[in-house]
Amino acid sequence: MSFSCPLCHQPLAQVKSSFVCPQRHQFDVAKEGYVNLLPVQHKRSRDPGDSPQMMQARRAFLDAGHYQPLRDAIVDALARLPDGRAATVLDIGCGEGYYTHAFADALPEAAVFGLDVARVAVKAAAKRYPQVSFCVASSHRLPFADAGMDAVVRIYAPCKAEELARVVKPGGWVITATPGPRHLMALKGLIYDEVRLHAPYAEQLTGFTLRQDLALGYEMQLSGSEAVALLQMTPFAWRAKPEVWQQLAERETFSCQTDFSVHLWQRTP
Rank of each mutant, 00 (worst) to 15 (best):
F27G: 04
F27P: 09
F27W: 06
F27R: 02
F27T: 12
D28E: 10
V29K: 01
V29S: 08
V29N: 01
V29L: 07
A30F: 09
A30D: 12
K31Q: 01
K31G: 00
K31V: 05
E32W: 03
E32I: 05
E32R: 12
E32Q: 13
Y34F: 12
Y34C: 06
Y34H: 03
V35S: 05
V35E: 02
N36V: 08
N36Q: 05
N36P: 08
L37P: 11
L37K: 02
L37M: 09
L37Q: 03
L38W: 08
P39L: 10
P39M: 08
V40N: 03
Q41W: 10
H42G: 10
H42K: 12
H42C: 14
H42N: 15
K43G: 07
K43A: 14
R44D: 15
R44Q: 14
R44P: 00
S45D: 11
S45V: 10
R46A: 07
R46H: 02
D47L: 09
D50E: 12
D50T: 04
D50C: 05
S51G: 08
S51K: 07
S51D: 13
S51L: 08
S51I: 06
S51H: 02
S51E: 11
P52K: 11
Q53R: 13
Q53K: 05
M54G: 09
M54W: 09
M55P: 00
M55Q: 13
M55R: 12
Q56W: 04
Q56A: 13
Q56P: 03
A57G: 14
R58H: 02
R58T: 01
R58E: 05
A60K: 05
F61I: 01
L62K: 04
L62Y: 07
